[in-house]
């Protein structure tokens, strides 16, 4: 498989009151079409990793390469174009635009990418159908439940058929049943060939849905596990790891 995302010796240090390490010398390669979960406790660097892949932040050192393009050399405008053409991002707290209807929220990235209005509308309607919220097209986010909002966020992330879908704790603000529904959706999307990088702190979910689980702690990769049956790793192994790390 081709390498879709490559991080080489990436470090991120935040210059706040005291210098805080976000990531420390991380190297990671994610092939095209893989469903990878990034796992770890709060402050382990999961979201930092995702932000660097999304080009929302820049590494202090090292390189982030997506589809052979090094993000470090891109201007802010070029990074914005990169995001609109290649990425879909799903956030933990949905981050929908409250003043736009559900349909307009989903159409916005398509319009940015220059998709024809009729095509974009058809695609948005199709996604709303698939996600079971077709009747909410004209509603505003404030009127939706958490699960519905996250579905809208997923539809918005998928409308441009991005090569990479980044999901930052997509189930973090949802109840377990709705969370499972959302993850089922992501698996279905992944079956279509899209690369998914999902950040989660839930080992059970990571093992159940992702093909690969990368565990982070204090900005370093602690474990990188393939979840295929042949790998010999199981959910309980991961949970053991999680419990062990939590006890340190």
């Amino acid at each position: 498989m081709n390498t879709r995302i490559e991080l080489t010796n990436v470090s991120k240090i935040y210059n706040g009151g005291s210098k805080q390490v976000g990531l420390s010398d991380v190297s990671l390669s994610i092939p095209s079409g893989q469903f990878a979960a990034i796992m770890g406790p709060s402050g382990s660097g999961k979201s930092t990793l995702l932000n660097l892949i999304a080009g929302l932040d820049r590494p202090t050192s090292g390189t982030v390469t997506v589809d052979g393009v090094s993000l470090g050399g891109l201007s802010e405008a070029a990074l914005a174009r990169y995001r609109r053409q290649r990425l879909g991002v799903v956030f933990q707290f949905f981050h929908l635009l409250n003043q736009l209807s559900v349909l307009d929220n989903i159409l916005l990235p398509a319009q940015l990418a220059g998709m024809k209005t009729a095509t974009a509308r058809a695609r948005a309607r199709d996604l709303l159908d698939q996600l079971g919220i077709a009747e909410k097209a004209g509603a505003y986010p404030a009127r939706l439940s958490g699960g519905e909002r996250q579905r809208v966020a997923i539809a918005r992330a998928l409308v441009n058929r991005p090569a990479v879908l980044l999901a930052d704790e997509p189930t973090g603000a949802l109840d377990s049943r709705t969370g499972e529904q959302v993850l089922d959706l992501l698996v279905e999307v992944n079956r279509g060939g899209q690369t998914i990088v999902m950040v989660t702190h839930d080992a059970k979910l990571a093992a159940a849905y992702a093909a690969r689980v990368v565990s982070l702690r204090d900005g370093r990769i602690l474990d990188d596990a393939q979840m295929q049956p042949s790998s010999g790793r199981s959910v309980s192994d991961l949970m053991q790891l999680e419990i062990k790390e939590a006890g340190k």
């Binding site: 999304a54 929302l56 802010e76 405008a77 914005a80 174009r81 995001r83 609109r84 053409q85 991002v89 956030f91 981050h95 635009l97 916005l108 990235p109 940015l112 990418a113 918005r156």
Partner: peptide
């Protein structure tokens, strides 16, 4: 601020 971050994440350039 939140919205500015969101639309930038969606692909709005600084100029936009």
């Amino acid at each position: 601020y939140r919205e500015i971050g969101i639309i930038k994440a969606l692909g709005f350039t600084p100029g936009q």
